[in-house]
């Protein structure tokens, strides 16, 4: 059976100033799969997510979402940024943050109503955070904050979910909750792409993997792609690069 493709990245090159961060990346992500993006620091994983979302402008290449369509609402592609990118002292509580997930659906000027509130509470419950709805976000633990941001993406009711290191620095309970959530999304037929750091947990959690280091080393089902030689190619080059840089500095 030929499955549909949710994200088609073609010939994508992204550079900050003129330093290339992503280099002629071609990547197809089938719909309804759980994909981990893996690669060393500075490999361009976050940039790839941001490029897919249209937050950074590529030098060349295109990104398409065949299952969503061109003129669909932007919020059908949900984004969970790396934690720590907001001012935690901001005067909002968990519920306020989750409600923001409804804003794209509401559009300009319209205010969130009872239905939106109910949806937000439901999403909070889905991540086990309903009893913290009225807590200011700085009074939550790191894992709880992460779950709130996941709930914000959930309430978007998107087709495609892009998450930047959701497992970073979270407690065991949150990790479990996130894994359950990812699987739930997959069962609902959603497409999920996660930037992931921990190589140990890739196998149990994801069904596809994309190995990235400036360009795509390989991508596909875990069974065929996630192996020693590919990992060595993904991480090895970067280590060489790091040592080369160190050598320069000592000169």
């Amino acid at each position: 059976m030929k499955s549909e493709t949710a994200i088609v990245v073609e010939d994508l090159t992204v550079a900050y100033d003129v330093k290339p961060v992503l280099w002629d990346v071609d990547l197809d992500i089938p719909a309804g799969t759980l994909t981990a993006i893996i690669g060393p620091n500075g490999a361009g994983k976050t940039t790839l997510l941001k490029a897919i979302l249209g937050l950074v402008k590529p030098i060349s290449g295109s990104i398409e979402f065949p299952t969503v369509g061109k003129n669909a609402r932007k919020d059908l592609i949900a984004y969970v940024p790396q934690s720590g990118s907001v001012d935690w002292d901001f005067p909002v509580n968990a519920l306020d943050v989750v409600m923001m997930g409804r804003y794209g659906y509401l559009g300009w000027f319209r205010r969130p109503g009872k239905a939106d509130r109910a949806a937000a509470m439901e999403a909070l419950a889905a991540v086990g955070m309903e009893s913290f709805a009225l807590r200011q976000i700085d009074q939550l633990s790191g894992g709880q904050q992460q779950r709130v941001f996941l709930a914000r993406a959930l309430v978007q009711n998107a087709e495609i979910y892009l998450m930047d290191e959701p497992f970073k620095g979270v407690d065991a309970r949150t990790e479990k909750a996130i894994v359950a959530l990812l699987k739930g999304l997959k069962n609902d037929g959603k497409t999920v792409v996660v930037v992931h750091h921990d190589l140990q947990t890739v196998r149990g959690t994801f069904d596809r993997v994309a190995l990235i280091n400036l360009h795509v080393i390989d991508s596909g089902p875990i069974q065929t792609v996630f192996n020693e030689s590919n990992l060595a190619r993904t991480y090895g080059g970067k280590e060489f690069l790091a040592s080369a840089h160190k050598g320069e500095r000592h000169d």
Binding site: K74, D75, I77, P81, Y103
Partner: peptide, 13 residues
Amino acid sequence: FTFDSAYGETLGF
């Protein structure tokens, strides 16, 4: 926008 402008951008604002 004040809280998280990058996220707002992904929602289409």
